[in-house]
Amino acid sequence: MKKVALLVAVAALSLGAAPAFAQTKKQLVIVVKGLDNPFFEAINQGCQKWNSENADSEYECFYTGPASTSDEAGEAQILQDMLSNPNTAALAVSPSNAPLIANTIKSSAPTIPVMTLDADLSKADAGLRRTYLGTDNYVMGRKIGEYIKAAKPDGGTICTIEGNAAADNILQRAQGMRDALTGQDGLAALAGEGGWTEVAGCPVFTNDDGAKGVQAMSDILAANPDLDAFGIMGGWPMFGAPQPYRDLIGPLADRIASNDFAIGAADTIGDQVALAKEGLVTALVGQRPFEMGYLAPSVMIDLIEGKPVADPVFTGLDECTKDTVDTCIQK
């Protein structure tokens, strides 16, 4: 019997089958808000780049998330499943709904390192994660506001386009923009401060849906034909629905060129840089999602090994205008 078993094992190896004692790699899990968003696909590309460069590692970067960015409950369930998976060595999550994700972490009581990526938990819940890796979202929002203010120094009427009402990163950007526009800190809405007023119905929350974002902008312009500016806290209307965005904003190109109308927007994903080159946005302030996905596995390994890790770990910003589009993205 021993001889037969040995012959079977040798035959299996000769056919390329994995031996019974092969070990599955430990997973460094990245859970994002939704797989339908090009921003998160860039994070995945960084994750896979790390895998290709670390093929001999005992770890692998594993990227997952719900099918849609609007599925907050789905993200929470995936997070819970990954935290209970014995093969998960560490985990990075981009919270769509920060309170919900915080409660999921609390209920799971993980013994493995957990960090946030791209979006953070609230300050009150920050102790649930080891570090945050991604954009300084408040600074990003301030830069968006600075570009709008430079175009319209005397102020005007503005509408803020946001994503998920409970996403901490988006809320920080909106706050940074308002602070930059007004020179005041912490205003929840603008009612003439610094010359700026947010029109009725704004901010608009679009759940990261590009088509909804463009429709919201169209509705706001129809109701406010003298609107002076949009502050777009994520690139969804542009990279998610580029042609509808062109159709809507194209007639405003001359006003944008003369600084009679201003659009400051987050991200430099997909068609966004092309739209900037076409003069259909005043300025883009872009994140570096590929870098987030590429750095996250190494940060998670440092956390596993008990090495010191800074909190937060910022990945920087790119700034693009019509005049700088050829050189504005960090390579």
Rank of each mutant, 00 (worst) to 15 (best):
A150G: 10
Q243H: 05
Q330E: 12
E291P: 06
D209V: 01
P244N: 07
A67G: 15
A257W: 08
L190V: 01
D267K: 02
D260E: 15
A274D: 14
V31K: 05
A223M: 07
M82H: 10
N54H: 14
V299I: 15
A166T: 14
A191F: 12
D118W: 02
F21N: 13
I301T: 11
E278N: 07
A167K: 01
Q287A: 09
A165L: 12
N103M: 11
A5T: 10
Y245R: 00
C47E: 06
E146N: 06
F39A: 03
L187D: 04
P86W: 08
D81Q: 15
G163T: 03
D208Q: 11
V139T: 13
G145A: 08
I43C: 04
N54K: 05
V273Y: 07
L280H: 02
Q184Y: 09
M238V: 04
G293L: 08
V214I: 00
L6D: 11
I112M: 11
G16V: 03
N54E: 06
C202P: 02
G306Q: 05
L275Q: 07
D254A: 15
E146H: 03
A222Q: 14
N259W: 07
A76N: 10
R129N: 14
S108K: 09
N97I: 02
Q330L: 15
G213R: 03
V309T: 07
Q287N: 12
A5D: 12
V313S: 08
V325N: 07
S94V: 00
A166P: 09
L35P: 04
A296D: 06
N207A: 09
G34V: 02
A92Y: 01
Q272C: 03
D254Y: 11
E193L: 06
G127W: 09
W50T: 00
N207R: 05
D185Q: 15
K307R: 15
A73P: 01
Q330K: 12
A17M: 14
A151C: 14
D81T: 15
Q184L: 13
E58P: 09
K322H: 12
N97C: 04
A257D: 10
F40P: 01
S57K: 05
N259V: 01
Q215F: 03
G194N: 04
A274Y: 08
M238C: 00
G155W: 10
S258K: 15
R178V: 00
K143V: 02
